[in-house]
Design a protein around this nucleic acid. Sequence first.
DNA 1: TTTAAAGTTTACCCATTGCTAAAATTCTTG
DNA 2: CAAGAATTTTAGCAATGGGTAAACTTTAAA
Lengths: 138, 138
Amino acid sequence: MNESQPIKRRHRKTRADHASELAEDYVEAIAEISAAKEVCRAVDLAGRFGVSSVTVNRTIARLVRDGYVTTQPYAPIELTDLGQKLARQSKRRHETVFQFLLALGVSESVAAIDAEGIEHHVSPETLRKFQAYIERHG
Amino acid sequence: MNESQPIKRRHRKTRADHASELAEDYVEAIAEISAAKEVCRAVDLAGRFGVSSVTVNRTIARLVRDGYVTTQPYAPIELTDLGQKLARQSKRRHETVFQFLLALGVSESVAAIDAEGIEHHVSPETLRKFQAYIERHG
DNA sequence: TTTAAAGTTTACCCATTGCTAAAATTCTTG
DNA sequence: CAAGAATTTTAGCAATGGGTAAACTTTAAA
């Protein structure tokens, strides 16, 4: 009577239709790095995420496959329109979560860490509540 | 000046020292199911999480390896003291996140889903802020 | 310009988390 | 108790996300 419906796990679920957390982190980083220094290279992402450039390479290949990114051998990494759209959404949501935590009184360093983890699990409805809270409080 | 220190990803990071999200979900579920019907079997967890019992089996093997669970072939699944401790912590944190979302005005169905995802990324400091908010508001 | 450094790619490895099919065991019921 | 149902286990497959070592390109410097 209690184990009603199955709890679907939210990590690694669908393929092309729904961007993974990793994809969101990557497009967000690619957008930021591209803005800061014109081109984004695998080595930049490797430094950013603290992983090897081999790992970056394969992740980028998946992003290409899923339509978020274009690149050619030994060339810089660029976002497609879809990738840019996802990057904007991710950045906006990330920023909202971060500001919300600050408004709640969480310290900046902890808010930065927690926002990273939380952002991928906040539904539109909850995000709106976060925004409302930010507007009410400072 | 911005790509200061590497951003450590919070999913699937360490091995034995830090319980994975999946481990937390499992011990929480095992505790709940054991409380509700005396014994917890793989098939119960499979139903709960919407995965096959083969998948449950292997996950349980990892939990045994990591010291959270004991079991024997064809026997029910039981939590170790460590597993019970983790289950209590997880349940408490989960409950706090869920109540916090409700207090913020998020609907019950969405709060249930978001709490599942968010709970694993909330630091002790942020959790205290959540609790404080719940106490202030209803 | 040639060479060395930096960056990228390829070829391997591993663990996790999912699956199906089939074998083994335990439970239930006729 | 024997047969069938339910459950668990084993064997094998796949995708993701991590690694190293070594080869290959590109860039920079002497």
